[in-house]
């Protein structure tokens, strides 16, 4: 849990909890990593912040609250209930942001303009692919990287020259291979790691070389 910067207020209804991922250890680890980097993030003077799979909206709202007012915040989610939940969380905290219901970044025209990119993907290795909305929030297929591996090739196209990409990952996702997934264009580093019960979680950060 963040100690210095406040966590946004949020409230998920019973209906929302059936299909939207509730903030958990992984969410809070990402918030802690963003808090640790907050001075650097503020110094970016970001124009466009994009979160993939914005879910409850806690992460996007946290960034918007703590970055200062001058950025434009966008979130995407494949689940309409989650896209609406993010708007609700933002409004609850008097933050302006927009959400789009789509698969990853389909329909977005954001070539090389994203200054801060965020993704807490479904990272848990599972025998089969997800079939329901709530499974889709965590089930990552056999490697835990089913959704992530579809997204990673898009990252260099999205990031601005100063852009940074924060990613939540699990030890079993193969951290070394993630860090080097695109050595020609991106450099990766571990910002934070934490054992939470049976999960060994990482926050990775990528920027342009």
């Amino acid at each position: 849990m963040s100690e210095g910067l406040p966590t946004p207020d949020y409230s998920l209804s019973i209906e929302q909890r059936e299909s939207v991922y509730e903030p958990a250890e992984d969410t809070f680890l990402l918030l802690d990593a963003l808090e640790k980097d907050i001075k650097k993030l503020r110094a970016l003077d970001a124009r466009i912040v994009l979160e993939i799979g914005c879910g409850s909206g806690v992460v996007s709202t946290f960034v918007a609250q703590n970055l200062g007012k001058h950025a434009f915040h966008l979130g995407t989610d494949i689940n309409f209930v989650a896209a609406r939940c993010t708007r609700q969380t933002a409004r609850m905290n008097r933050i302006e942001l927009d959400t789009i219901q789509t698969d990853l970044i389909r329909g977005l025209r954001l070539d090389r303009v994203v200054d801060i990119l965020l993704f807490n993907p479904p990272y848990v290795p599972t025998e089969s692919e997800a079939t329901t909305d709530i499974e889709r929030t965590w089930a990552g297929g056999p490697t835990g990287r089913g959704t992530l591996d579809r997204f990673l090739p898009e990252v260099p196209r999205l990031l601005s020259s100063q852009g940074v990409f924060y990613l939540v990952a699990l030890h079993q996702n193969d951290i070394p291979s993630l860090l080097n997934h695109n050595e020609k264009e991106l450099k990766g580093e571990i910002v934070m790691q934490r054992r939470c019960g049976i999960e060994h979680l990482y926050i990775l950060k990528f920027s342009r070389i």
Partner: peptide, 18 residues
């Protein structure tokens, strides 16, 4: 056509559309 509902545009499409 992509609908906008509750302020949220829906850009999803079927596999055979893209």
């Amino acid at each position: 056509v992509f609908p906008i509902k509750d302020g949220i545009p829906n850009m999803l499409c079927q596999e055979d559309e893209c």
